[in-house]
Amino acid sequence: MLTFIINRMMTLAISLVVASLVIFTTIELIPGDPAAFMLGLNAEPETVAALRQELGLNGHPVERYWRWVTGMITGDFGRSYTYQVPVADLVMARLGVSLPLTVMALILTIAIALPVGMMAASKRNKPADWGVMGMTQLGIAIPNFWFAMILVLVFAIQLQWFSAGGFPGWDEGLGAGLKALVLPAIALALPQASILARVMRSAMIDVLAQDYIRTARAKGLSERQVLLRHGLRNALIPVVTILGLQFSFLIAGAIIIENVFFLPGLGRLVFQAITQRDLIVVESVVMLLVFSVIIVTFFVDLTYAWIDPRLRHSRLNKGVWS
């Protein structure tokens, strides 16, 4: 197990270095002057020169890359050009909205998808299964910003249970903060939960056809015990793979949903930064997102090993004849 973790950590470190190099190269080394780009077409040469100085664009690329990476490690992400505050502060504040939103959507996705998928698998080819398959098809087909608007129309405008958008801040209390995130989290989770429920269903159907399920039934386990004790964990292996991939979709989806609900999150920050050509912010936020996706992948790998003992003590296994 320890070798497995060390192995994965190495992969993680290498992925981070490669990702930072790619981001740095695309933003800083491609033709065109970032300072001129940020200031737009009508900028005075002196202003551009001053900004170049301020951004530290005059050094050698290797040195600048080093400064950027070491800066990030110590928490210094540079200063935002448009907001004139340290990017770190800006990102931290926005993270306070985006992180709870993503986590909430993730929890909703899992909480909806796993039971629904399991139920559909155990009632295969019966009305309940058809219902689930139909609903999830719809859930995947509906664009989530449109679904978000429907949610606003029904729950905010008609029923007035939630506010239509905006975020009161965590100072208003935990309840108020969470309440503002409910509709966005639902809108964000719907398509992902639909996909995951289908994955869960087919994984469970595969597992239920296995010999050890028949063994479990022969022991005298009830259908429910068979599903929960022997089915669920085995079916989770493909589900966790998809869930890991979905995390990045949730982050990307947040950019649109945060704009629909006027939430001051990372998504809106990066969206505004792009329109305002604030490359420092874009660079940092993208790196942060990449970092979080890589970390999630790391945890997905650990989860595999936790679920499947065969991976824990995996030796060189040469397939063909088992």
Binding site: D211, R214, A216, A218, K219, G220, L221, P309
Partner: peptide
């Protein structure tokens, strides 16, 4: 039947490689 299975009547199967839960 559930109370009989495994308690009064047991069964073993042909496939020893796949008839046990790999994760337990």
């Amino acid at each position: 039947m559930r109370s009989l299975r495994g308690r009064q009547i047991s069964m073993i199967f042909q496939e020893p490689m796949t008839a046990l839960n790999p994760l337990m």
